[in-house]
Every structure is written in structure tokens, then in C-alpha cells.
Design a protein around this nucleic acid. Structure first.
Lengths: 242, 242
DNA sequence: CGATTCCGTTACATTCTTGTCACATCTTCA
DNA sequence: TGAAGATGTGACAAGAATGTAACGGAATCG
């Protein structure tokens, strides 16, 4: 059997908190409580819930603000949130703000309805994995046994040696990796690397390719990674995706 | 077929080491050896074991201390540890200290028992991933043989020398440790260290990095700890992480 | 308060990157 | 095969980025 879903209640009114807690626990959920944002963050250090029930009105930091922060923080952005409001007319305001909450519920609500919403949100959260949410920038590329790490701006060779790249070399390699197994002429490379036109007798691409080949230990006489397409330009061959 | 489990033996007595090694290798485990803590950290830079067999009495830094450090360091805290003690009566003391070891064994022990314990610990480690455990509060960081103690505001070098840090240096190092192996640009560092915007020609980060490098005995011409990522910023390299 | 330490700023030396050029090689094709 | 054109690459230099000593205001300490 799997672990029960974990719910965190953030609500300043002790009685409401206890009421909700007891009902949820009867329904096989693991529940913890915080009275305000401060306590919540403290608790989150050691315990990660699947869903947070957040009251809108809180002493100290506002529930909306907490909500925003939770969805910005890498460690907490995959926690589902249901906002609770005291009055229905507050709802309009919240909905307009588009904070990161997954559902909203205005008091008074029936316990059954709360439970239903919780199950619904959790189910939705599980079938729509986070990956779909923020379109992350790609941090590393793999090709022919090499690994390119963008942040550290270096390559890791198939045998594990780390090779540093300059900015220009990295951009060039990135461009090749975005067009694998495709011959790119010098004008195109200049455009993609520097967003500028190539001048008349512009050899900078050739030189830069040479420098990159040296880093990749690619013999120009018989290159395996960056091939020269004679009379046209250069091409990165990855082996995969022919 | 999957890779064999990797075991690291940390034990000063060469004969014991060889004996254990041979037995474990006969039983399809990949084994490496270190004679002391210094060697261990060195080895860990390029090779991450699943389990460490740690002798309690070691020249230089104590096995207990190493154990503590291993479980504090993010890069090594998921390595299982079995402590070996020379005499049974030492065991009580250790058990009372609650260092991060997963099992204990007092010499002399039979090879079969050792193997049984290893298999047991590894099995347990695999079914309960460390990641699920509550994240510990950091009061110290360990990296590349160095230890940073936040409360005392000092560093302990791999060979045991204590180096005091100023508040600014400590904050900077802490920031690096929270983003290991990631290039951080000056704006980001300024933001993370001082919660303020960097001014136009702000070189304070450069100067502070220089000061920190001096404390860490890191040669700027060829830094091993804080690397310059040219045109971008700086990066702390921890060795482990691949 | 005076002494000391810390740390941002500045200035200058040094290092690194990269486009350009010259010349050696290579490829193509008449 | 030889000439013309294309590519490879060492050398160079300008400009940009970094390392750091020195200075002085600010913070800390006794």
C-alpha cells in the first residue's frame, strides 16, 4: 500500500484548523497545521506536503503572497494549493490576480466538498507532471559520448576529462547541436552565432571551428564530429538521428 | 546486468585492508581503499561508492568525524556507512553519539558477517532513499576536503588547519556551496550575498572572491576550488556531482 | 573613543578572447 | 597536371575581462 497523501493546513483560526484536520485524517490523509506563514516555512523545511490548504487572510504575510512564493520556489512549486476565502466576494479579487493556486473554495464549505476538491486537485496534479508547466532552458547536451554543460561552460569528454570553452566556442557548439547532421554555411553560422551579417571575406567562422575542433580533439584531416562540407560549410555529426 | 556495488574501505592497516578487499572482490563488489581521511576525500572527488567501510581509529582525522562530515555533505550524504571498531567496548560510546553510520561491526568479525551486513545495509539504503528523509539543518558544509563551520565562522582545511573567515567571506562561500558546480554571474552573487543590485562597474565581488581564494589557498592562475568562468562569473567546483 | 578590522572603490597590471591576416594545404576541374 | 578557389591555422593585436594592491570610510571592539 502506498503512503497517504500529505496535506498542510495554513489557517490562523485554531478551531477551523482542528475541524478540517480531523475530517481529513478520518479520510486517510496525513495532515499537519500551521497558524501562519512563518510556521509554514518552518514546517516545510522538514516535511513536504502534496497539497496546501491556504487561508486567504492570515496574520503576518498574506495568503496570496505565500501562494506566489510557493510557486516561485523550486522546492515547493510542485505542491498543489487550494485557497480558502472567508467571503465569496473576495473570490473575484483573487481570481483576477492569478496567483499560483490550483483551486479556490469559499467559506463556509461542507467537509465533503473540501475533500472532493482535494482529491480532484491531487489527481490532476499527478496526471499533469510538472515538466509541462515551466518550459525550462536546456542545461546540458549529450552527443557522441561528450557532454556540454551550459552553466559551467565546459565539455566533459567521453573519458571524463573536463574541457573549458570560451563563450564563442560554446555558442558555436550550441548552434551545431541545435542543427545536428545538417550542413550549415558560413553565413548561416554567422547569423546564428552573432546575429549579424558576415563580411565579405569573413574567415572568423573557419577559425572558430578550428578552435572548437581542437577542444574536441577532432582531427581536421579526418574529422569525426565537425565535418567540413566542401564549398558549403560545416556539419556536426551525432551518429544518432541520421 | 547491472554494475557491481562499489565499496570504499577506509582503514589504516594495510593488511586488514587487503584482506577485506580481496574477500569482497571475490564476491563481485567493486572495491577501493584509502588509508586515511585525506586519501578518502581525494578518492571521492572522482569516484562515488555506494558504501564506505570506515575504521574508527584513523591517523589524522577520526573516523567519527569523517562519518559526520560525510553525512553533512550533500554530495556524500547518500553513501551508506559501516563503522568498524577495534574493541567491542568502543561500540557503546559510538552508539551513544549517533553519528551518521548505518551499521557497526566490531573486530574481529568474520568475512561472512561483514558481507552479510554490507548486503543488508545496501538493500535497506535502496528501499529507503535518503532524499525522502527530512533535510537536515546545515551548520556545516564539507567540500573537497574542507569543512565550513557556520557558527564558528571558520574553515578547516584538509590538513586540519583552522582558517577564520570574515562575515562577507563566509556568506560568499555559503552562496557558492548552495550552488555547487554552477557558474554564478556577478549580479546573481551580489543579489544572493547582499540582497541588493550590483552597481554599474561593481568589482566588489571580484575582490571578495580574490580574498576568499587566498583563504582557501586557491591559486587564481589555476584555481581548483573557485573557478573563473570567463565573461560570466565564478563557480565553485566540488569534484563530486557528475 | 581610539584602535582595529572589514569591505567597497579605484587604478593599474595582467590575462583572455576573438577577428583579421598571411601563408600553407587541400580540392576541384579544365 | 596545374591553376583557381576553398579551407586550416599560427601569429598578432585590440579590446574586454579579471586579479589585486592600495586607500579610506564604516563597522566593530575593547
Amino acid at each position: 500500500m502506498s503512503d497517504p497523501d500529505r496535506i498542510l493546513i495554513v489557517e490562523d483560526d485554531r478551531e477551523t484548523r482542528t475541524l478540517i484536520r480531523e475530517y481529513l485524517e478520518e479520510n486517510s490523509l496525513e495532515v499537519r497545521e500551521s497558524a501562519d506563514g512563518r510556521q509554514m516555512w518552518e514546517l516545510l523545511k522538514g516535511w513536504k506536503p502534496d497539497l496546501i490548504l491556504m487561508d486567504l487572510m492570515l496574520p503576518g504575510e498574506d495568503g496570496l503572497m505565500l501562494c506566489k512564493r510557493l510557486s516561485v520556489d523550486e522546492n515547493t512549486q510542485d505542491i498543489a494549493i487550494i485557497m480558502l476565502t472567508a467571503r465569496g466576494d473576495e473570490m473575484d479579487r483573487i481570481l483576477g490576480l492569478e496567483m499560483g493556486a490550483d483551486d479556490y473554495l469559499s467559506k463556509p464549505f461542507s467537509s465533503r466538498e473540501l475533500l472532493a476538491r482535494i482529491r480532484s486537485v491531487l489527481r490532476r496534479a499527478r496526471t499533469t507532471p510538472r515538466a509541462a508547466l515551466p518550459p525550462k532552458e536546456r542545461e546540458s547536451y549529450h552527443f557522441s559520448g561528450w557532454t556540454l554543460r551550459l552553466s559551467a561552460r565546459h565539455l566533459i569528454s567521453p573519458d571524463g576529462v573536463i574541457v573549458d570553452l570560451t563563450k564563442g566556442e560554446m555558442i558555436l557548439l550550441q548552434v551545431f547541436l541545435q542543427h545536428p547532421n545538417e550542413a550549415l554555411d558560413r553565413d548561416r553560422l554567422t547569423e546564428l552565432c552573432h546575429s549579424r551579417e558576415a563580411t565579405v571575406f569573413d574567415r572568423s567562422i573557419d577559425v572558430q571551428v578550428g578552435r572548437l575542433r581542437k577542444r574536441l580533439r577532432d582531427d581536421p584531416k579526418n574529422p569525426t564530429l565537425i565535418k567540413t562540407v566542401w564549398g558549403k560549410g560545416y556539419m556536426l555529426t551525432t551518429g544518432i538521428d541520421p
